[in-house]
């Protein structure tokens, strides 16, 4: 295919040089380190991230409002939040594996939160939303030009919150509040308990709980982020990083010069881009088939295709 990894200026395997930061990080701490650096340098004056209940308890005014109050927020439910400091950023680190509608804060970030230079992290579909917001700002006045750093994360699929609840509490038989970390890797869904127990579920089990909207997505490695990153392709504790746009190139260059990251050439690491390419093609091929299936879904009736 060839286009499965999107356009990029450079690609490396990297991890943060901040040992403290790596303790809470999902893999190489790329997103947290990038935003910490960008905040410090004034490249952004705040970032939209996926926080959680503990964060909400500590910084209620930094979170999006839905109809939940603190008591109603379950462990591992992502809460979109604005962070302005490194402490807030660290409190929100780590992958949540269910839907965090970060784009919902995009306009509010420039209004109530008064940001002029927004950082945002999101899945490939959320990067698509950000770029659409910049090119077709139907309801987002004075927002597009304020987006100063959009970091995309690799994504095969996402889950509704209730799916994560079902997988962890039903299939893995662990309480969500006792979970320290979740991870998808090496063909399995991993749940790590706070007391050291580890449960792995084959992805065969998780597939049926995926969010349906993910099955028409044709982007695995966040082609539209300024920078995109994910664990796939790099050794444990490291992340694969694609630098894509002019903004991304400039920020990455500055962060490297400031010693934020140690890197290895992607060609030198195992499993490397070969695996990223393979998984990207798998996702795109599978979802193209879904889209084709939608075109002949009924009897002479199609389901809607969002791609024009």
């Amino acid at each position: 295919m060839g286009a499965e990894l999107g356009n990029y200026k450079s690609c490396v395997s990297a991890r943060s040089t901040d040992k403290e930061l790596l303790k809470n990080a999902q893999d190489g701490g790329i997103v947290t380190q990038l935003f910490a650096f960008a905040l410090e340098e004034g490249i952004i004056d705040g970032a939209i991230v996926a926080a959680n209940k503990e964060f909400y308890a500590k910084y209620p005014s930094k979170c999006i409002q839905d109809s939940s109050n603190l008591d109603m927020i379950e462990p591992w439910r992502p809460i979109p939040a604005i962070v302005n400091t490194k402490a807030e950023l660290l409190a929100a680190a780590g992958t949540k594996y269910n839907i965090s509608p970060n784009v919902a804060l995009l306009k509010e970030a420039t209004r109530s939160f008064g940001l002029d230079k927004i950082g945002i992290v999101g899945t490939p579909c959320q990067m698509q939303a950000v770029r659409k917001a910049q090119l077709y700002p139907v309801g987002l006045r004075n927002v597009g030009a304020s987006i100063s750093l959009a970091v995309g994360i690799f994504c095969m699929e996402n889950f509704p919150y209730q799916s994560i609840l079902q997988l962890v509490e039903d299939h893995a038989a662990m309480k969500l509040e006792s979970v320290k970390k979740m991870e998808i890797g090496k063909g399995k869904f991993w749940v790590y308990g706070k007391r050291g127990q580890v449960v792995q579920l084959p992805l065969k089990i998780t597939h049926k709980y995926e969010q349906p909207g993910c099955h028409v997505c044709l982007d695995y490695v966040a082609n539209l982020g300024d920078i995109s990153t994910g664990s796939v392709g790099s050794p444990d504790g490291w992340s694969t990083v694609f630098v894509r746009s002019k903004i991304g190139d400039s920020v990455w260059g500055k962060a490297m010069a400031a010693g934020c990251f140690e890197t290895q050439p992607i060609e030198k690491v195992k499993p490397g881009l070969e695996l990223v390419t393979k998984l990207a093609n798998e996702k795109i091929t599978k979802n193209k088939k879904t889209l084709e299936g939608r075109a002949t879904f009924g009897v002479g009736k199609a389901l809607r295709n969002p791609y024009i």
Binding site: A104, T123, Q126
Partner: peptide
């Protein structure tokens, strides 16, 4: 239509 992926746009 089974298309929403929860971005919040």
């Amino acid at each position: 239509q089974g298309l929403c992926m929860g971005c919040g746009s």
